[in-house]
Simulated assay, not measured.
Amino acid sequence: MQDGQAADSRHSKVLIIGSGPAGYTAGIYAARGALSPILIEGPQPGGQLTITTEVENWPGDESVLGPELMARMGEQVRKAGVEVVSDLIVDVDLTRTPFLAISDGGTHYTADTIVVATGASARWLGLESEAAYRGRGVSACATCDGFFYRGRVCAVVGGGNTAVEEALYLTNFAEKVYLIHRRDTLRADRTNQRRLRANPKIEMIWNAEVAEVLGDTSSVNGIVLRNTRDGTTSQLSLHGLFIAIGHDPATALFKGQLHMDEEGYILVAPGSTATSVPGVFAAGDVQDKLFRQAVTSAGMGCMAALEAERYLAGHNTHMIATDGTDANLQI
């Protein structure tokens, strides 16, 4: 990264990178704190909710379309006084202060604090038919969409803890749940495997992969399975297909500058959004691989903005953990 001022340079007290529920909420709270934040929308303004259909677990809305919810949130952010910029950050330097972020158009954004809210994206199987039915029977979030399959038949693809937990969760609604795994053993821990075996609603399908998603003009009605050992195919009737083969946090931009776990999620201090670099905060799916909900992301966005405000006020240069040690050093 080149140092120095660019021809097109902007400075803000708070720079928010990302525009899902975490980024938008951080913007609202930062604006209410009179911090004049700049929010960089990134490649997908509004985040993952813009590619979902109905959302029924957002407080205050019995049912709302994901794109509609994010459009309303974006409008509220702008009315609050946040400067929203349609831009993409391609490089950052967190070793200097003020921090520096460079966009693909060459604009240099400097900031006293940064809120990272770049989110994460689900891994998909890569099938054309899978993409065609996303939001119409194909999902990557049982907690988000399981309610729609009350009394119906579903399948989960995957072999790790996430897949098993998704299958177990779906049994609260579905009549039957298939767990499809391309091998003959699961990667999930023993506790989850015990729960799986004890649940009469779940049936394992071993050594199989989804070759095609079947459906009509409105929804999924089945899948084609391919045996991973002999290549033979078969059809399975169902109403919902949940892909649980992992998520990829959008953190490549910060590798080598922020502490991360082995999967690339940004590590934060316990009970905080503070990262390993004082003045840089991470909110939403970029650091949360457990809940991954819009409402928890929004809560973390609120936390990040408030922590940035305290940092700027000089009261939170070093986050103190409950045991009296420097929390920033614990991550």
Score class of each variant (00 low, 15 high):
residue 64 V to H: 07
residue 64 V to S: 06
residue 65 L to G: 07
residue 65 L to N: 08
residue 65 L to E: 08
residue 65 L to Y: 10
residue 66 G to Q: 08
residue 66 G to E: 09
residue 66 G to H: 05
residue 67 P to L: 12
residue 67 P to R: 08
residue 68 E to S: 07
residue 68 E to H: 12
residue 68 E to V: 14
residue 68 E to C: 06
residue 69 L to M: 15
residue 69 L to A: 11
residue 69 L to E: 04
residue 70 M to F: 03
residue 70 M to T: 10
residue 70 M to H: 03
residue 71 A to T: 10
residue 71 A to I: 06
residue 72 R to C: 08
residue 72 R to E: 12
residue 73 M to A: 14
residue 73 M to V: 11
residue 73 M to I: 14
residue 73 M to D: 02
residue 73 M to C: 13
residue 73 M to S: 09
residue 74 G to S: 09
residue 74 G to H: 01
residue 74 G to K: 00
residue 74 G to Y: 00
residue 74 G to P: 03
residue 74 G to M: 05
residue 75 E to I: 14
residue 75 E to V: 11
residue 75 E to Y: 08
residue 75 E to M: 12
residue 75 E to Q: 15
residue 76 Q to A: 12
residue 76 Q to T: 14
residue 76 Q to G: 09
residue 76 Q to V: 10
residue 76 Q to W: 09
residue 76 Q to M: 07
residue 76 Q to E: 15
residue 77 V to R: 01
residue 77 V to M: 05
residue 77 V to A: 11
residue 77 V to F: 02
residue 78 R to I: 10
residue 79 K to P: 04
residue 79 K to R: 15
residue 79 K to L: 10
residue 79 K to S: 11
residue 79 K to I: 09
residue 80 A to N: 10
residue 80 A to I: 06
residue 81 G to F: 06
residue 81 G to H: 13
residue 81 G to M: 13
residue 81 G to P: 03
residue 82 V to F: 03
residue 82 V to E: 02
residue 82 V to P: 01
residue 83 E to L: 11
residue 83 E to W: 07
residue 83 E to S: 11
residue 83 E to P: 04
residue 84 V to N: 01
residue 85 V to M: 00
residue 85 V to I: 12
residue 86 S to M: 04
residue 86 S to F: 01
residue 87 D to Y: 01
residue 88 L to I: 01
residue 88 L to K: 01
residue 89 I to E: 02
residue 89 I to Y: 01
residue 90 V to K: 11
residue 90 V to L: 08
residue 90 V to D: 09
residue 91 D to K: 08
residue 91 D to R: 12
residue 92 V to Y: 01
residue 92 V to P: 01
residue 93 D to W: 10
residue 93 D to Y: 14
residue 93 D to E: 11
residue 93 D to I: 11
residue 93 D to K: 15
residue 93 D to C: 12
residue 94 L to P: 01
residue 94 L to H: 07
residue 94 L to S: 07
residue 95 T to N: 12
residue 95 T to I: 07
residue 95 T to L: 07
residue 95 T to A: 10
residue 95 T to E: 09
residue 96 R to T: 13
residue 96 R to V: 13
residue 97 T to Y: 09
residue 97 T to F: 12
residue 98 P to G: 06
residue 98 P to A: 13
residue 98 P to L: 07
residue 98 P to S: 14
residue 99 F to Q: 01
residue 100 L to K: 11
residue 101 A to S: 14
residue 101 A to C: 14
residue 101 A to H: 05
residue 101 A to N: 10
residue 101 A to P: 05
residue 101 A to L: 05
residue 101 A to K: 02
residue 102 I to S: 07
residue 102 I to E: 08
residue 102 I to V: 15
residue 102 I to T: 15
residue 102 I to N: 04
residue 103 S to K: 03
residue 103 S to F: 04
residue 103 S to A: 15
residue 103 S to V: 02
residue 104 D to A: 05
residue 105 G to N: 12
residue 105 G to T: 15
residue 106 G to M: 09
residue 107 T to R: 00
residue 107 T to A: 01
residue 107 T to Y: 02
residue 108 H to D: 05
residue 108 H to A: 06
residue 108 H to W: 07
residue 109 Y to A: 02
residue 109 Y to M: 02
residue 109 Y to H: 09
residue 109 Y to K: 00
residue 109 Y to G: 02
residue 110 T to S: 15
residue 110 T to W: 10
residue 110 T to D: 05
residue 111 A to K: 00
residue 111 A to E: 03
residue 111 A to L: 07
residue 111 A to D: 03
residue 111 A to C: 09
residue 112 D to T: 10
residue 112 D to S: 14
